[in-house]
């Protein structure tokens, strides 16, 4: 569905950087995003392109993981779009139904697109969120890893290695 033959490497890098921060923002916990981004977003003048609202996304899977695509079920998302005074447009998509979180995500996205705010917002908002997400992920994974086993079949021809 996406065929941007004309896209340059620079544009591709920009797209993948933006996709990366979208992922961090959408997976943030509402409280954490608010704590980190409320200051930066405070006083930013914007108009709504799309007011924060809640909708559904149909989640799809594949038979056997690799086969025919099917509809598994829907999930809730909150989304919003803003336009800053200089015309920069930001979009926010977050899991579940927190409209404030979607609003903040959209403003943060717009600020990240502004060259003069980009580095500051990355450092103040995105990287700390990434860190928190990473910590949670690793802790879960270490708990799972504690239940890892090696099974041995006892007899029947096959010797345990």
């Amino acid at each position: 569905m996406m065929a941007f033959k004309t896209e340059t490497d620079a544009e591709q890098r920009a797209t993948s950087r933006r996709a990366d921060w979208f992922g961090i923002l959408s997976r943030s916990h509402a409280g954490e995003l608010d704590a980190l981004a409320a200051d930066a977003a405070d006083g930013v003048a914007f108009e709504w392109l799309r007011r924060p609202h809640v909708g559904l996304v149909m989640v799809r899977g594949r038979a056997g993981g690799t086969g025919q695509v099917f509809n598994l079920g829907e999930m809730t998302v909150a989304r919003a779009s803003v336009r800053l005074a200089d015309g920069t447009v930001g979009h926010g998509y977050v899991q579940s139904r927190d409209k404030r979180q979607a609003e903040l995500a959209a403003i943060v996205d717009a600020l990240l697109l502004q060259e003069h705010r980009h580095d500051e917002i990355m450092a103040k908002v995105i990287e700390p969120l990434r860190q928190k997400e990473q910590t949670r992920r690793i802790e879960k994974s270490r708990k799972a890893a504690s239940t890892k086993v090696e099974f041995f079949t006892m007899v029947r021809g096959e010797n345990p290695a």
Binding site: H53, V54, G55, L56, V57, M58, V59, R60, G61, R62, G65, V69, N71, L72, E74, T76, V77, R79, R137, K140, S141, K143, A144, T147, E150, F151, F152, T153, A161
Partner: peptide
Amino acid sequence: RTTLPRVAVSEPIDTSKMAIRRRISATFKD
């Protein structure tokens, strides 16, 4: 659910990229 608009359809989820919390096989031990 019927009161909410559907805003998108996802790409098929890729379960081979799952962050695993449990994973067992009854057919292959190793």
